[in-house]
Amino acid sequence: MSQVLHTPPPTTSAPAKTGTGTDLRALAARHGLSVSGARPSLPEYVRQLWARRHFITAFATAKLTAQYSQAKLGQLWQVMNPLLNAAVYYFIFGVLLGTKHGVPDYVPFLVTGVFVWTFTQSSIMAGTRAISGNLGLVRALHFPRAALPISFALQQLQQLLFSMAALVVILLCFGVPVAASWLLAVPVLVLQFTFNAGVAMIMARMGARTPDIAQLMPFVLRTWMYVSGVMWSLDRVLADHRDLPSWVGPVLQANPAAVYIDLMRFALIDSFHANQLPTHVWLIATGWALLAGVGGFIYFWKAEETYGRG
């Protein structure tokens, strides 16, 4: 017994033991085998991702439905949740702090801001945990990992569409007229989704390497929310504080969250005029979307083969 057990693995195990590596590599090359777990090229990666598009949508929808499946009111929470959220903000900022003075159509203004912001916020939060929170999935199945952050961003988009349905009702209740400009909401959502998915991918890579980032993000996001004019009009606040350095205004207004929120307000609320938007606003919105979307995708892909280690 001990004889065999003493036998060192090299002699017992298979053919190409003589020259370490080279023979096996040659054998692999001769039969056209590829390295397992290697990162595919960028075009190939895009192709694989496209092939998994049905999985991405199915996964997003499944997550969305699973979210409230144990609740008695079920899917009604999809709409209730954002509405209650908006109600809380209205109570604090509109009533208690009086930010609503001087903002026409304050309720539609606030609700639009909250909904659009929530979309970005939850996409980023979900993106941060996309890999680190789904290690089981990553370690069990083979698919381009970018499917996860994109799927989470898509889930949030679906969630937003529910909220938008509620928003339309609110707009009509507060006497905001239906206008052709409502159609602008579609390109805004497309741009914002691209931006969110991109940032989600960036955060997914960072969160996969350092899970601690998930603890930090709520604070970063809250700060971002307050400087993006979700509950107040940046325009008006800046006008009240003329002593601020001159670059603060343009910077705040060009930050992606503020851009998408204001564009959505411009599209939906007729008392929100174009002169409240920064100049070249569509250009800025597209720029942010492309920068985050393409940059985030490449950044995420660069570490594709390392996800799931640990």
Binding site: G21, L24, R25, A28, H31, G32, L33, S34, V35, S36, G37, A38, V138, R139, A140, L141, H142, E305, T306, G308, R309
Partner: peptide, 17 residues
């Protein structure tokens, strides 16, 4: 899992068809 390409290897290579 490494053969499946789900766990990165530290050294060496795994080739698959």
């Amino acid at each position: 899992k490494a053969v499946a390409g789900l766990l990165p290897v530290e050294n060496g290579r795994i080739y698959t068809d």
